[in-house]
């Protein structure tokens, strides 16, 4: 149940969910896709952002989303599908309003990540890779999220929730379940996974100024240096005169 059982049979691999053809992609979405394509010297570079945009609209990589990307870029749907199924952030089935990631790569796992994932899985009643029946949460065992100094780490909609433990996770999930305002430990107010995907696609949400510059472990060395008066050498004055 920890998401680390060895799987060997892959009956549904190789494609997005073709059974669910629902979509909210409109002409406006296509216009935004073209905006993304125009940001690059070659349009296909925009494919990853475009797929993020698809997720922000459809809550997953939908068949229509794949087709729309193929149309806008003039490539085959098979080529888009090859990309959409390569990257783990692209979801084949609807993700929850909030997408919960628990890091279980070695260091986080050892520091409690394995236990935390099991706890969150029990609390939500879903296995990693699943979404709760009410669509509120989806759960994923994520790989190292570059916050090892804050282990064990949890992510909510790709915002850091540092130094987690089961009790903090319970509070967090409860707040999210009840739509109370939640802040990332080093980021912004938690919005939703779909809104996050829109930012990743390249359409800012105006929340860049929320949260601290840095917190906790990020400042550990700086704090000691300040305390002890350590600093990098002064720049030699001669250089400025030479220029």
């Amino acid at each position: 149940m920890s998401g680390h059982e060895f799987q060997s049979f892959f009956p549904e691999s190789g494609t997005v969910d073709m059974a669910d053809t629902s979509t909210h992609i409109t002409e406006a979405t296509l216009v935004e896709m073209r905006v993304l394509a125009d940001r690059y010297p070659q349009a296909r570079s925009a494919l990853l952002p475009m797929l993020h945009l698809v997720q922000s609209v459809d809550g997953r990589v939908s068949p229509r989303g794949i087709e729309a990307c193929a149309e806008v870029l003039g490539i085959t749907a098979a080529q888009v599908s090859g990309v959409a199924t390569f990257y783990t952030m692209y979801k084949r089935r609807p993700a929850g309003e909030h997408h919960i990631g628990v890091c279980t790569t070695a260091l986080c796992a050892v520091m409690g990540g394995d236990a935390l994932l099991e706890h969150v899985s029990d609390s939500l009643g879903v296995h990693p890779g699943e979404t709760t029946a009410d669509g509120k949460f989806s759960l994923e065992a994520v790989e190292c999220n570059a916050a090892c100094d804050f282990a064990p780490v949890m992510m909510v909609n790709w915002e850091f929730m540092d130094n987690m433990d089961p009790d903090k996770a319970d509070l967090l999930l409860d707040d999210l379940a009840h739509d109370r305002e939640v802040h990332s430990t080093r980021g912004a107010t938690i919005t939703s996974w779909k809104e996050a995907e829109r930012v990743l696609a390249g359409f800012p949400d105006g929340r860049a100024d929320e949260g601290p510059a840095a917190a906790g472990a990020s400042l550990a060395g700086l704090a000691i240096a300040r305390e002890r008066g350590w600093r990098a050498p002064e720049a030699p004055v001669r250089l400025k005169e030479e220029q």
Partner: peptide, 11 residues
Amino acid sequence: GEVLHVIRRLQ
């Protein structure tokens, strides 16, 4: 992609 706030700040 998994670091939303970093991306906001960079943008």
